[in-house]
Design a protein around this nucleic acid. Sequence first.
DNA 1: ACTATTTTTTTCGAGCCTCGAATTAAATGG
DNA 2: CCATTTAATTCGAGGCTCGAAAAAAATAGT
Lengths: 393, 393
Amino acid sequence: MLRRHANVSRKHISQETGLSASTVSAITSELLDEAVIVSLQGTEDGALRRGRPQVRLSLNPNAALVASAVQQLDRIAVTVCDYTGKTVAEIDRAFRAREAGPEEFPRTLIETISDALTSLRPGAGQLERIELGVQGITDVEGTAMLWSPITRYRNIGMKEALEKAFGVPARVSNDCCMIALALHWREPERFASNFAAVLLSHGIGMGLMLNDVLVTGIRSSATEFGHLSHMPRGALCRCGRSGCIEAYAGDYAIYRRATNAGPESVPRNDIAQAEISQIIEAAKNGDKDAIAAFTEAGEALGTGLANMFALVDPFPVALVGSGTRAFDFIEGPLRRAIGDINPYVSGSEIEISCFPNEKPLIMEGCTMTALLELDEEIARSTAPLQKVFTDAI
Amino acid sequence: MLRRHANVSRKHISQETGLSASTVSAITSELLDEAVIVSLQGTEDGALRRGRPQVRLSLNPNAALVASAVQQLDRIAVTVCDYTGKTVAEIDRAFRAREAGPEEFPRTLIETISDALTSLRPGAGQLERIELGVQGITDVEGTAMLWSPITRYRNIGMKEALEKAFGVPARVSNDCCMIALALHWREPERFASNFAAVLLSHGIGMGLMLNDVLVTGIRSSATEFGHLSHMPRGALCRCGRSGCIEAYAGDYAIYRRATNAGPESVPRNDIAQAEISQIIEAAKNGDKDAIAAFTEAGEALGTGLANMFALVDPFPVALVGSGTRAFDFIEGPLRRAIGDINPYVSGSEIEISCFPNEKPLIMEGCTMTALLELDEEIARSTAPLQKVFTDAI
DNA sequence: ACTATTTTTTTCGAGCCTCGAATTAAATGG
DNA sequence: CCATTTAATTCGAGGCTCGAAAAAAATAGT
């Protein structure tokens, strides 16, 4: 509750959670004793009313620090946040992932986190957790980057090196999952129990939340939405197969279709954003191939989403990343494909939001993941939960 | 625990569930007082060992009765089971659904259940719940049959009429969900937390369990697997759209392809099982079109499953219903399609089981649903555990 | 300034579910 | 008939929860 809302009174917590006032009092007094939370005088809305004034409670910023990192093709970014989630240190520096050896990844990361930590004002909390967000496939345990488009090396261990260097728990996560988590916390009403975050960039990724749980694939920590079959025996995908959604909706697919290169031609993997911008301009000027490129991308995305809506309820969708710049050309075909395929869902009723800049979302998701794990740990150590009855049958 | 295993000792329950012996003792003694369970002398394995013998516990058969019903195109079947799930009465009679008016559905059902109940030996438990399984779309609350291929009437209310007639809670559920539930209880190791039951008959249905929860669609109580897009702008489906999985894998699609009727031709809805048998025979004799029909069915099913495996982990699949008779012709293309589409799943590693006869599974699922709801109710209504005080005089 | 009123928070006693330790129960072995 | 073994129960205690009562901390009114 306090992670969601700062400055709320015990009364308010009691009303929102349904716990009795006495229970809230007991729990908060214990957390205050342990300096996990702090109290402030004055009512929530600042108005002075008759009666004993509410005491506003908040998380104690100094209870802990967490470090979040995002490793991308050309940059490495690190953010250190206090226990309330406020950024207290930030570094964003160039990093040439393609030219880096496998050992450079953890090394550079450790250096950057160290630099961020030394820039902190004294008196801040202690570092308690590190969370790293990367493109590509990470193992479900979050120990390593199994495969990533940013490097030709496989299976780059991260967790162990980080934990050794800083002495705190560390994890690697898929960027799309972090984006989904960030949206879940940023707009809890819209992105509630069921929604998808679709990352549109060179490839297509998805972070999917169903029943309040992030869905994880068998090896990748995210769902392989980009490699769902859109068109059997269709366009050549970067993964080597044919007809994947990505082979129609990824940057390379849009470039290929816009330049009329033919669906079988080998995907380029060095497409600059400027080239996509040119295609958008061309589409605005009525270029048939450019428009067809975005139309086919929208159809592929819409078909994939419609299939998911046929399996579970329709859910809100967030489109994230540079691909959203062409949203005006993608939206129509996408919504049409949804309506065409699913008899019970009209394309127009699906909530779609765009977030052009994925990086802050990935960072936010990393921070939230670290903080939530920390919360769990604190909850465990404070008031040992009773053994949960697990059905062993 | 006792619903899963009859005749288990308190000791065994304690070991399996992880609850302490004292807790198990407290709970079981209360349930014994309420006659929800009964005890029997003698060890589980019958062997006489040293030490105090175990007391075997089981559900009390007479604690309650539940009625399950399956309404199909040409028959209506009713089974009454005791609280342990044992069948104590059974009726299966002809019913011409196509010629029946909307009011005949609940009326015939009530008649049949009444007849089954009057045939019971005296001393049996009281009827406590009714569960009905039907093809087609039911609302999530289980009140009505919104649409079903067995009748041209829409929105046939069932719950209210049944509850009025018998004075106990009633529900209508989708047949595929019931099949999934039955499999989950029949083979809990194979069909555990994640699996799918695919019904292959005139149309294609699916009961899907993810994370121990049956996935329900927005209106239908089951997932619309049959209407996932397999081939954009592909074969005409019974639902009016094009390229659905069902338009390749349903009986009418197989008949259409085998008779070379062209993918745009209007689906027949009166295909007899004998006609499908003929196509199977033709395939065995090497008929090109018959083989192609099953091949395309397998590809469509495999593609749909592969897409699901890309979203969540691969899971075991049960193929159910008359369509499994052609499994030998379907299996190869199905497994190939899975491997072709999902880079991380080989088609050969997916566990596929066949269950040709869907009716007993639907019935079993209905019974289990009713019994499990009853269990929940008993757990809720049970008086809170109280300590026993000895008289101080 | 003092008291009544209002509102929030804390304290207190109790209930429920769980557990471990000790006890009781019910059998076999010698 | 007693020692031993195994199962089940009882007992006391702890953790989390609650409702009722009390306390705390403010304003309103005389």
